[in-house]
Design a protein around this nucleic acid. Structure first.
Lengths: 224, 224
DNA sequence: ACTTGATTTAAACAAACGTTTGATTACTTT
DNA sequence: AAAGTAATCAAACGTTTGTTTAAATCAAGT
């Protein structure tokens, strides 16, 4: 059993010292860089400095490793989103106001940026981004149980704040905002800013820019 | 030599009747659905109903097939973007006005939607989206020669229209808009609208929504 | 009809893949 | 110290991968 000390934050809830954790960390990095199929179990176990057979011992198969990695990562991420959204809703409920679009979007975006700030979870958002481009059968379970409910919840909250907006526009504007979030963590986008001054690589500043851009998009006048 | 009739539109500039063209069409579909590495040459030649060896005969290798497929697709797409942008610039130059953000974004987005409307090119945008998530070495040539110059050109035009906007904001807002475009064609996003009424699957309407959302994001007030 | 060059084909290649095995080591429990 | 469980290890399994070969087929040109 895994009994050694585990970091207590919502971001890092695995023990990265034992074999199981080292496999997860290495797999997250390599899956993010090369994709699921292009990453061999041998490259993962080389990176993690463990034996090739330990993957099947601890996880059962490559597919189950991927699913465990996704679950392990997406659950704390989305729980933090729900938690943050609830906190904002409660805050504005007290003031008898509806929660501003900016705050709804912050609850959607900020937990992702918190992940990115963590060394051991830096690659997870890219893995998640890959899931939205794949149509592999074995991922659909994660999509239906974790991603779709999150979207519904945020659509509902947005409906309270923008009650006059048609479902069509709310749906697409939410997903256009999500597209922006995902694209930020794409390797080619990140690569374009590596040689820019450090002051421009402040992730809090980028988060504010993403919120600002998306909120304005949400408030745009509905066409015809 | 490829001598038979070729469709004349900018979207479809390959002959899909010969072996070479059938391989390209099948490869585009399967690469979009499963990724580059996850798609075997045998699955491509099965789909195209040609012999497995014909891939290496016509293209040299799997990597060269991918590069040819990307070049074949991205060149007409970006040329149409340049052409449309030039046309808008000329139009507003005559009126002594700067080209509106909406028109710049239309030149960036509409050619992609034109691709999507073409049966034989329906999958290409997903393939392109995959390229932005990969960091495979052999793709970097396409990125540097096709994608980066396009971004620079649009950044420059946006600079003329929004001269007071800092480079930082212009850069990120452009890429947030691009992220929205890419995310639209992701399988999970497309899957979410399949069971919606047909009236909501009008791609012209969606294009207008994307332009409207992104233009409002660009016009958002710059923070602090 | 013959020749020539361009394609297509079935078959085979070595290499890499995910997975399994059975022996060995490490750690607790008694 | 002995026994028992958990974890690790090197080695090998059968498939599948991209690629190559050499023969067979096709399409003109003379």
């Amino acid at each position: 059993m895994c009994m050694s000390a585990s970091k207590g934050t919502h971001v890092l809830n695995i023990d990265i010292e034992d074999t199981r954790g080292q496999i997860l960390v290495a797999a997250e990095k390599l899956f993010a860089e090369n994709g699921f199929q292009a990453t061999s179990l041998r490259s993962i176990t080389n990176e993690a400095r463990v034996n090739i057979a330990s993957v099947n011992y601890h996880f059962g198969s490559k597919e189950k490793l991927i699913l465990e990695l996704l679950r392990q990562g997406i659950r704390p991420l989305n729980e933090e989103r729900y938690r943050m959204l609830d906190a904002f809703e409660a805050e504005y409920d007290e003031k008898d106001e509806t929660i501003p679009v900016e705050k709804i979007l912050e609850a959607l975006f900020r937990p992702a940026f918190q992940y990115f700030a963590h060394q051991e979870r830096r690659y997870f958002l890219r893995v998640l981004g890959r899931c939205l481009t794949e149509e592999a059968e074995f991922i659909s379970d994660i999509f239906e149980n974790e991603w779709e409910p999150l979207c519904k919840k945020f659509e509902k909250t947005l409906h309270d704040t923008l009650p006059e907006m048609p479902d069509y526009n709310r749906f697409w504007r939410l997903h256009l905002a999500v597209g922006g979030l995902i694209h930020i963590f794409n390797p080619v986008t990140m690569g374009m800013i590596q040689d820019k001054p450090k002051a421009e690589n402040d992730s809090e500043k980028l988060l504010q820019e993403l919120i600002c851009f998306s909120a304005a998009g949400f408030k745009a006048e509905i066409q015809s």
